[in-house]
Amino acid sequence: MPSDPRALQNQLLAALPAAEFEHFSSLLEPVEMAAGEVLYESGGQLQHVYFPTTAIVSLLYVLENGSTAEIAMVGNEGILGISLFMGGETTPSRAVVQRAGQAWRLRADLIKLEFNRAGPLLRLLLRYTQALITQMMQTAVCNRHHGVEQQVCRWLLLRLDRMSGQSLSMTQELIANLLGVRREGVTEAAGRLQRLGLIRYSRGRIEVLDRAGLEHAACECYRVVKHEFDRLLPPPPAEAGAGGTGYHGRSP
């Protein structure tokens, strides 16, 4: 299909120089992602990479007893399926759509071809991979050393960074499953954050009332992850003042 300006909603695609974007975006296929849809299973052969625009996807580690815990989330800042261009064909994690929305996908053979061209896309994807690894490492540290309330704050902030608006539909049970903690702990944490005036929670919807206060209540893990993404990747188009033209003209 011809290049589509909607692809600029993904920050990695928008970061490509104009000529690279025109070439690369013509290879992409638009897809709709439904909440709960499984894009990859642990150990499964990867057929595509995905560039989310409005969808958000959780990368989950699945234990032998079926329990899961989120190790990272990917939204409009990134790409799903890094194993394909990092030399592997499978991934140990399960990718599940957390928030329904749109994405662009690219066949496995095409992403390998583009990566091996060793152009701007290669450098951009390697820097994103480093940022994603930081998120995974910090998630492991946070789950081991910080309380449920701080984990909930970190998770909410990471989610907000990958969407527009300040409210999200999410049950406490689902948050508990993603964090790998008991639901009672999430209920207690959400109740305290609500009493502090940081969020409003009602019937599976969480509205953030005080973003700055939520950041203050979070542990350093959120700030470490955000700093690494900000350091390694270009800012969103609105911050870059691109006026709808993405980051074209900047060297990634």
Rank of each mutant, 00 (worst) to 15 (best):
S3I: 11
P5K: 14
P5A: 13
A7R: 04
N10S: 08
Q11M: 05
L12R: 03
L13W: 00
A15P: 05
P17D: 07
E20T: 11
E20R: 13
F21L: 03
F24R: 04
S25E: 08
S25W: 07
E29G: 02
E29D: 07
P30N: 07
M33C: 14
A34L: 13
A35W: 11
G36I: 11
L39N: 04
Q47D: 10
V49Q: 00
P52H: 08
T54R: 02
A55V: 15
L59K: 11
Y61D: 08
L63Y: 09
E64G: 13
N65L: 13
G66R: 15
S67P: 06
T68I: 06
T68D: 11
I71M: 10
I71C: 09
A72M: 10
M73Y: 06
V74G: 04
G75T: 01
E77P: 04
G78Q: 02
L80M: 09
L80S: 01
G81I: 01
G81Y: 02
I82C: 08
S83Q: 12
L84W: 07
F85K: 04
E89N: 11
T91C: 06
S93F: 01
R94V: 03
A95N: 06
G101Q: 01
Q102W: 08
R105I: 06
D109L: 09
D109Y: 05
L110N: 11
L110Y: 07
L113D: 14
E114W: 05
N116Y: 15
A118V: 14
A118R: 14
L122G: 02
L122E: 02
L124P: 01
L125G: 02
L126V: 00
Y128R: 00
Y128T: 04
L132V: 00
L132Y: 02
Q138M: 13
T139S: 14
A140E: 08
C142K: 14
N143I: 03
H146E: 02
G147T: 10
V148H: 01
V148M: 05
V148W: 00
E149M: 01
E149K: 02
V152T: 13
V152S: 04
L156N: 03
L156A: 01
L157A: 04
R159C: 04
L160I: 03
D161E: 10
R162L: 10
M163F: 11
G165D: 08
Q166T: 10
L168G: 09
S169M: 12
E173W: 15
I175T: 10
L179I: 02
G180N: 14
V181S: 07
R183H: 15
E184N: 14
V186M: 12
E188W: 13
G191P: 04
L193N: 02
Q194H: 09
R195S: 09
G197H: 08
L198H: 03
I199P: 00
R200Y: 12
S202W: 12
R203S: 14
R203F: 09
R205I: 15
I206G: 03
V208Y: 00
V208G: 02
L209G: 00
G213K: 00
A217L: 13
A217Y: 07
C219S: 14
C221N: 08
C221P: 00
V225S: 03
E228G: 04
F229Y: 14
D230M: 12
D230S: 12
L232N: 08
L233W: 10
P236T: 05
P237A: 13
A238Y: 11
E239F: 12
G246H: 03
Y247R: 11
G249P: 05
S251T: 12
P252R: 05
